[in-house]
Design a binder for these strands. Sequence first.
RNA 1: GCCCCCAUCGUCUAGAGGCCCAGGACGUGGCCCUUUCAAGGCUAAAACCGGGGUUCGAAUCCCCGUGGGGGCACCA
Length: 498
Amino acid sequence: MPNQGNSAPPLRVRFSPSPTGLTHLGSARTALYNFLIARKTGGAFLLRIEDTDQKRYDPSAEQDLISSLKWIGLEWDEGPDVGGPHKPYYQSQRKDIYRKHAEELIEKGKAFYCFCSPEELKVVRETQQKRHEQPHYSGLCRKIPPQEAQQRVQNGESHVVRFKAPKEGSITVTDLLRGEITVENSKVDDMVLLKSDGHAVYHLATMVDDHLMQITHVLRGEEWLPSLPLHAHIYEAFGWQQPVWVHLSVFLKPSGKGKMSKRDTAEMRLTGQSIFMKDLAGMGYLPEGVTNWIALMGWSYDDHTEFFTMKDLIDKFDLAKLNPSPAAIDFKKLDHFNGLHIRALAQSELAKRLIPYFDKAGFKVDAAQLAPIVAIIQTRMATLDEGPELAGFFFKEEIAVPAEMLLGKGMTVAASIEAVRRALEIVESLPEFSATKIEEPMRALADDLGVKAGQLFGILRNAVTGQEVSPPLFESMEIVGRKKVVARLQAAISKLGN
RNA sequence: GCCCCCAUCGUCUAGAGGCCCAGGACGUGGCCCUUUCAAGGCUAAAACCGGGGUUCGAAUCCCCGUGGGGGCACCA
């Protein structure tokens, strides 16, 4: 659908993760969609760190988060590291703001102080569960007269602030992807807004921040859908206008059965797959490939277009084409997209990105050395770490090739030796050692020997590259260079002779 | 147990009542190209969860069932 002149108004959106572990695919996609719609509409994308749970907050997770988002090319207009008009962007530093808002709600009679201890609460919850009821707050402290509650707070009694959820009637909230959702108010619990340590809980902190930071659209995970009615009530209690709610579907494990558990992710990493951005980067996936892949899990453009650069995505992304149903992750498809983006890379760029992988495999190479090689391996890689597997032989001084690999298909030892010997003669006598100049006499040699070209080339491939599977033979020979080819063929002859 | 969401090939999806005996992509099989492996081209198999409505007509709307997913904390 082409944009008809009067495009969408600029949206203010945010990604607000809680850094408690490594950044995974699901978070990355939520961040990506937020970023895309901000850029698309010329709006703003903010990053806000939800670190009100001091027990779970992990600074290294925050580092991982920032680097993961940057890796796929996301930039934020406001956030912890770049600042902005609504700072601070750490919820732990906004404690006073939340306290003030909690008090405002108490004054309005929309919240109350609760002095129930966690132990008491636990007992109530357990009996409710035994009775097969949805666990909910008993309502005990709701009845305490405000003055008395105020007094107890002033006396230093440990307390929390709870939302006074309406108990009559029902509430209808609208989600962009799912339409109207109506829930009985009796199902909305008196959730804790402010913990006894003075920190706000998500339900308060996020609503307050989204309002204060003038967020127009909330794109968040589907796991928040059950608390949407609560959130709508909180907005109403403050008298604020709600943002547009968009709940993105969750990612399911490859089997499609449930979302990834801690154990699943651990097992997956053992098999060389991972849902963590950090791992994906190390495994040789391109940020372009990963981005393309996750963008299409839950969003689509049309029937034919599947290859997207970030620029394309910004151009084409549209909230209206979001899909509400959960999606199973498929790593085969990642490989496909990654291959597509590897092939779309300029050769010089590919060479540059390949260097660290050769390095890791123990090959000291530079971009100039890699240049001719890239040309013949570019279509042969799904991930960058396949580079050294495919082309490591170019940089080895010696290659060890077992004798049985040097035997031509259906050929005797003697015939194989003869073939290599004759090929060696050609290699040594060629005036110009280039791929095109090598091929012709080698084909003639095969004819002369009475063997198929494939039989001869097979022996030579194994002798020169040490691999059954390699880039094209003659191009490889040219790059390896005459001197080394001669040495490797001589080594093959002596190996066969023993 | 209770609440909510979702439901098209194995997977990601197109489909907003007739364009659909359902299209694309990944994966899988076959063929072509080819010195191996890829890439590329062609091709095949493969789906509207079930039942009721509404309608001249339903993959598309409604209801029920079933299945799947998510949630029920002083975590986010």
